[in-house]
Simulated assay, not measured.
Amino acid sequence: MSVANVLTHAQDQVSRIIEAYKERTINRVFLVACGGSSALMYPSKYFIDRESTTITAEVYNSNEFIYRNPSTLGADSLVILCSHKGKTPETTEAAKFAKNKGALTISLMYVATAPLGDESDFIVNYSWAPPGQLDPHPEIANYAILYRLTMGLLAVKEGNKKYEKLLNSLNSFGTVLEKAKEQSINNAQAYAQANKDENVIYTMASGVNYGIAYSFAICILMEMQWKHSHAIHAGEFFHGPFEILDKDVPFILLMGLDETRPMEERALKFLKEHGEKLLILDAKDFDMSVIDEEMRGYLAPLLLNFVLRVYAVELAAATGHPLETRRYMFKVPY
């Protein structure tokens, strides 16, 4: 499929889903996935929490979604699932479980067909580029598709005006990412050389950006670099985790543009007072002038996620440990 057709295809898939919303009563959204796909869900939950007056949203690990069996799951529920290649067994079972409960199920996949799609009412095939590389269509990347689905839902059910602002902003997002890469590459190379031998690196964020910190900790540092890590919520930092900080412990702090930024600023002050090995990635330092002002807080995690992947590529080059190398994943029974 050509690049242009990929864009049109994904937009058509989303349009059909938006039409389906009009035919359903939806009062609960369940965002269901595993690992990095689960991390994708946090910004959309944040948006629904902030914007909706009639719809609630929860993020679930695919297996726990089945085991916990939420009593509110039913015909008035929307379940959005994600698996990059559509083959994650737990997520496929979660889709089947949700459909059996009468929920409307939508699955996001990079591939055109997969077991997850077979168990879902609708699928969306998102665009994807390797870490650190510019996606030709960031407006239909996974995070963007999730926003299209959740903001579109609130546009249909509550008349929320953010959906059109999202679409207009996404059309300019490639320019934002291109500038961000140019701005970050030298700093990423320097960071990689300085931290290639570190055994542990903590990541921290809050609000709409927390999922980005979580994804970087478990998918990049732990899975792809075999470094010890933990994603720390900035609001929880002072309730235990700050005791681990000293001048020899590396921390990455993500600072966004949403309403929870004061928690990140508080953490920043303490990190600067008591730590030295710090990487501060602040969305304010990047040019988002082409993005609608009301959308910048919501789109900051998409920007920070991309910048972190630029750092990941350079870290892998410095460590000599390719991001594709695995010890267990896809290699042994689990």
Rank of each mutant, 00 (worst) to 15 (best):
P89V: 11
N61P: 05
C219N: 12
K331S: 13
L281K: 05
L268K: 14
K96D: 11
S71M: 14
I18T: 13
L73I: 12
D76M: 13
L166G: 02
D248R: 10
H84D: 03
V249N: 03
K96H: 13
K85W: 12
R28H: 15
I220V: 13
N199C: 08
Y67W: 15
D292G: 06
N27M: 08
L81E: 03
E93K: 13
E236H: 14
N5Q: 11
G207N: 04
G132K: 00
I26T: 07
I80F: 09
E64P: 00
Q183N: 11
A317E: 15
E64F: 15
E90R: 06
L323P: 05
E182F: 04
L40M: 13
T8S: 15
L315P: 01
V124C: 02
S83R: 05
E265P: 00
C82R: 06
G207L: 06
S289P: 05
A20Q: 11
Q13F: 09
I185M: 09
V310A: 02
T53G: 15
A312V: 10
Y214E: 08
G35V: 05
L279Q: 10
K161W: 00
K22W: 07
E90F: 10
F30R: 07
N142T: 10
K85V: 11
P262H: 10
S215M: 09
M151L: 08
S71G: 14
L108G: 00
